[in-house]
Simulated assay, not measured.
Amino acid sequence: MGNPLENTKQLNVGIIGCGAIIAQYLSNFRRLDSVNLVAVADLDPARAQAVADSYEGVRAMQVEELLAADDVDLVLNLTIPAAHADVALKAIANGKSVYGEKPLAATSEEARQVLDAARAAGVVVGCAPDTVLGTGIQTARKAIDDGLIGTPISATATMATPGHERWHPNPDFYYQPGGGPLLDMGPYYVSALVTLLGPVVSVVGAASHTRNERTIGSGPREGQKVPVDIDSHVTGVLVHASGALSTLFMSFDAVKTKSPNLEIHGEKGSLVVPDPNHFDGEVQLFALGAEDWETLPVSAGYVDSGRGFGIADLAATPAGQEPRAGGGLAFHALEVMESVLESAKSGHSVSIKSTAQRPPAVPLTELATKVSA
């Protein structure tokens, strides 16, 4: 098993936004030779200081100080979706590359500004989800590329939860523009579908809004009400350039589903694909003429990966090439999701203006790791 990242240069990273998701990034940064965390910042200085105290060699800074810091090569943007574009544009203006949490921006218009600014400045834009680089999605992709299901015909993507307010102590942004089940969870599913089946050319959508407020279920704000300003249940059909059709079911209203998170159907077989919000998991194949499902061996992807591995992959991407978890894919996914919501309002099919190449496949790779901090 080769390691294409062995000779990757080290990338100095500064993080803006020290909320709940940062813990996963910190855990993985400790394992990645190519990622050197040097600074953190947050609107709440105490949160930034707590992170700096827990990670050797990291200093807490004000946001503007981090954006201007000479030793920061890339800004990891972990702010809320409404702030993604503003922080990214400021980082780019300071000559820094950017890797953001999903979505790339609250709107595709803002996301286009980010990509245009980065192109003009000669810096790189990456964006979560990097779950598509793990062994789950990549093993499924290899099965498709190897012809195990023949020509892909269709896919289903299913995500059902009664709402993040049940566990998240500050869920407000999930129910504001830029949030909702599609823009929050859809990036995992749409990015996986494009990785597996290629870009989307048109969509049809429908959506509903069942409650005007939600009740926070945990933390210091337990019992407080949160207004709902978005559609909380969204369905859509994506028409891929290949001719394959994908059906989306994204809900903050439904309680549970027994359906697989992702299924891919072809003329010679069907695949059950692991949850695209995870990096690994079993891929199952039911081949035409078979009597039962077969679990495929892990055959591609970054082994034992997690959030932040997309930054290591970005660091290894040759100059001038798009990272696998790059801004182009993130922009395409965002436009697809926005267009599903637009179609839901208009009742008409919406054509997708952007496109994105399927990112290069990830060979089965054990990343070099480190023990530090």
Score class of each variant (00 low, 15 high):
V237Q: 12
A39F: 01
A52P: 06
H278K: 15
A39P: 11
P45L: 06
W167A: 14
T369V: 04
A290Y: 12
V340N: 06
L104C: 07
P199E: 00
A117K: 14
G198I: 01
L248H: 12
L115Y: 09
R307Q: 09
H332F: 07
I264H: 07
K353M: 14
E56Y: 09
L367G: 09
G281V: 09
E335F: 11
G269L: 08
I137L: 09
V87R: 01
D313Y: 01
G308S: 06
G281E: 13
M159A: 13
L285T: 12
A361Q: 11
E6Y: 04
S108Y: 05
T355M: 11
L74S: 06
E322T: 14
G308E: 10
R119F: 00
D42R: 05
S232W: 08
L367D: 11
G205H: 01
N12W: 00
A117W: 14
E213G: 01
H84E: 03
L11C: 07
D86K: 03
D33M: 05
T158S: 13
P169M: 11
A287M: 10
V13I: 11
D313A: 12
G95R: 09
E56Q: 12
W167R: 08
T257Q: 15
Q62H: 10
E366H: 15
L43W: 10
C18S: 07
E6A: 15
A50G: 11
A140W: 15
P220K: 04
M337Y: 01
G147N: 02
T131L: 00
A316L: 13
